[in-house]
C-alpha cells in the first residue's frame, strides 16, 4: 500500500487551509502564498512553514511547500502514511508528488529515507536517489513488529 491508493475519497473533500499569514492574487490563475500553514482534506493533513498554491481557472493545479513539511494520510487499508521532508511539490494534474531534503516516509510496513523521493499517484510509480542525490534506505519491519510500531516510524 502506498501513496497511490491514498484515501480516494479524500480528493473530493473540501480542502481547508489555515495559515498565520496569507498573500493571494485575485485573478483566477493567480497563486496564493501562505506561511506556517496547515491544510486538511479528509484524512490528509499537511503542515508546512511556507506553501505556494497555484490555480488554473479556479482549480488548484500545484502546491509547493518548503521550509519543513510533515504530511499524514490514512490509506485505503486503514494504515497511516506519514512523511517528513524539507520540501514537497504536489502537481495535482499529473498527480506526481516530489519530496526533497532528507525525506523520511513511514508506513506500517516500514520506512523509506532518501534525499529525493518521487511518487506518481496514478501509476503507483516511486523513484528516489540516482544521479548524485544520495543513498536511498528502506526498512521493512518483520511481520511480528508491524502492528505495534506503525506510528514509531523511521
Amino acid at each position: 500500500a502506498g501513496m497511490a491508493d491514498a484515501r480516494t475519497s479524500d480528493r473530493n473533500q473540501p480542502m481547508d487551509i489555515e495559515a498565520a499569514h496569507q498573500v493571494c492574487g485575485l485573478g483566477a490563475n493567480d497563486s496564493c502564498t501562505y506561511t506556517d500553514v496547515t491544510m486538511t482534506q479528509g484524512t490528509l493533513r499537511i503542515k508546512a512553514a511556507k506553501a505556494v498554491i497555484q490555480q488554473v481557472n479556479g482549480d488548484m493545479s500545484r502546491v509547493q511547500m518548503t521550509g519543513g513539511v510533515t504530511l499524514r494520510q490514512q490509506l485505503d487499508d486503514g494504515t497511516d502514511f506519514d512523511s517528513k521532508s524539507s520540501a514537497v511539490d504536489y502537481d495535482l494534474r499529473s498527480e506526481v508528488v516530489v519530496f526533497t531534503g532528507n525525506v523520511a516516509i513511514t508506513q506500517q510496513r516500514g520506512t523509506l529515507n532518501g534525499e529525493r523521493v518521487v511518487y506518481n499517484m496514478k501509476s503507483g510509480q516511486v523513484e528516489s536517489g540516482g544521479n548524485g542525490n544520495g543513498r536511498v534506505k528502506m526498512r521493512i519491519l518483520p511481520k511480528s513488529a508491524q502492528g505495534a510500531s506503525a506510528q514509531a516510524g523511521g
Binding site: 500500500a1 502506498g2 501513496m3 497511490a4 523509506l112 532518501g114 523521493v117 511518487y119 501509476s123 503507483g124 510509480q125 516511486v126 523513484e127 528516489s128 536517489g129 540516482g130 543513498r135 536511498v136 534506505k137 528502506m138
Partner: peptide, 9 residues
Amino acid sequence: EGDALSGTE
C-alpha cells in the same frame, strides 16, 4: 540501501 529506487510502492 541503494543508490537509486524506482518501481512502485
